[in-house]
Computed example of a mutant assay.
Amino acid sequence: MDVILSLPIVSYFAAPMLTSWSTSLNLLFFYMTWTTLVLSHSPLKIELVGTLAVRIVFWLVPSLFFLLFDTLVPSLAESIKLYGSASIPRRNASSLARQVLLAIINLALFTALQAAISVFATSLLHRPLFKTSTTLPLPWQIVKHIATLYTAREVLTYYLHRHILHSRGPVARLHVQYAHTCKAAAPYALMLYADHPLPLMFNRLLPIYLPSLVVRPHLLTYFLFMLLTTIEETLSMSGYSIIPGIIMGGITRRTAAHYASRARGNYGAWGLLDWIHGTSVGKNIVKDVRDEAEKHQVKERGVKAANDTGSLMQDGIDNLKKSRKGRKKRSDSS
């Protein structure tokens, strides 16, 4: 518990809500917390507890809340669910309890597997798997590593999902049996980890963890990548039609279409490779982004912002000319 509470990610996001410190003081507090954590705990402990904390806070807790909402207020939930009442979880207490237990067991198994891989890699490399130092990663380095990890994740997710989880092998049969019910509807967030451990490893663990093993970013960058992907996966599996954002709303609809179509397509996380390979179900990513941009009036807002910026620049130039003319008149009169 002391490791979770001392995680700099938690303290960094909590500080603005609890205090009125400036940004510089928040960064200083973030650095001091991270330094204390690195000096007082082993890199392996920080990695495992931090990863587990991210998954609990940003997947398990929200998914249980969504599940309660869907089952306790189904009439309200179905109005904001993709595919309506068909997407409401079955109100069977024993079935839902088994599903919750399976998801928690999978979370524990993945944490244990990650621990084994990290211990083996550390002993082989004679240094921690991720860069765990008091020096914080540079912003450009974070952006570069996150972009690389996301690209690798999209590639692995698409090809593993399409050619292993939806082929004719034993892993595919387990995935269909556990993850795809007979009901053609959108999923709910608890189903993110409610799958057989073997197909779940190909679907959720390897596309995120394997690229991280190759890139070996700073541990803070890995935590950020874990946080972003966990939030994305939780929202995309929620099945809600009110998910905000031009990109995130489309990901949620494509995930729902994947389950509703009984896995006829939409195998990638973002839908880019589905568009390239022609395996999109419903709107592909290009049409979806275009429609969402039109709905949110992105073009009009961009033109308005450009016009406002141009007006400000013109006003500044006019004021500068006026001040120069005033100085010139004063110098001529003197």
Rank of each mutant, 00 (worst) to 15 (best):
P244F: 00
S241H: 06
H196G: 11
D332L: 04
T181N: 14
D318T: 07
A93P: 08
K328M: 06
F120H: 04
W275L: 07
D332M: 03
L320G: 15
A15F: 02
Y259T: 13
L5R: 14
A172Y: 12
L320V: 12
S238M: 05
K325P: 12
A172R: 14
Y193I: 01
T35D: 13
L213Q: 14
S238T: 09
G326C: 03
A97E: 04
R91Y: 06
A115L: 06
V215G: 07
W275A: 12
T33Y: 11
P74G: 13
R327E: 11
T23K: 04
D315S: 11
L25T: 10
L96M: 04
T111H: 00
Y158M: 04
T229I: 01
F29A: 15
A257G: 12
T157Y: 13
K328D: 14
K329Y: 05
A257R: 10
T151K: 00
P244N: 02
Y209T: 09
S75D: 13
I251D: 13
I105H: 12
L320W: 15
H296E: 00
Y259C: 14
R91N: 09
F30C: 11
I246M: 08
F30G: 13
D332A: 07
D315F: 08
R264V: 03
I104S: 14
A103Y: 15
K283F: 10
T36W: 09
D274W: 04
D2V: 04
S11E: 15
Y209M: 08
E154K: 00
G239W: 07
S334D: 05
G245M: 01
P244Q: 01
R253N: 00
I317W: 15
H163S: 09
H258E: 07
R127A: 15
P170G: 01
A77I: 07
A77G: 13
G245Y: 07
E300V: 10
D2W: 09
L5K: 13
Y150T: 09
T252Q: 12
M191C: 07
Q114H: 01
K144G: 02
N26D: 12
P139G: 12
I142F: 11
L82V: 08
A194M: 06
D70S: 02
A121K: 06
Q314V: 09
L160M: 10
L113P: 11
L102A: 04
I9N: 03
T157W: 11
S212V: 05
D291K: 11
Q114V: 01
T148R: 08
S87P: 08
V54L: 10
G268R: 01
G268H: 02
L320K: 15
T33S: 14
Q177T: 08
M191P: 03
A116E: 02
I142P: 08
F225I: 00
T134L: 04
A263Q: 11
F66W: 09
L102Y: 04
P62W: 01
T148K: 06
I4S: 07
V298T: 10
D2Y: 09
S333A: 02
F202K: 10
A115Q: 12
A293G: 15
D195R: 06
R153D: 13
L174T: 00
T229P: 02
I208M: 05
P74F: 05
M32L: 13
S323D: 05
H196A: 14
A186F: 10
K299C: 14
A103R: 15
S63N: 12
G169W: 01
Y259I: 12
A115T: 12
L109N: 14
H277I: 09
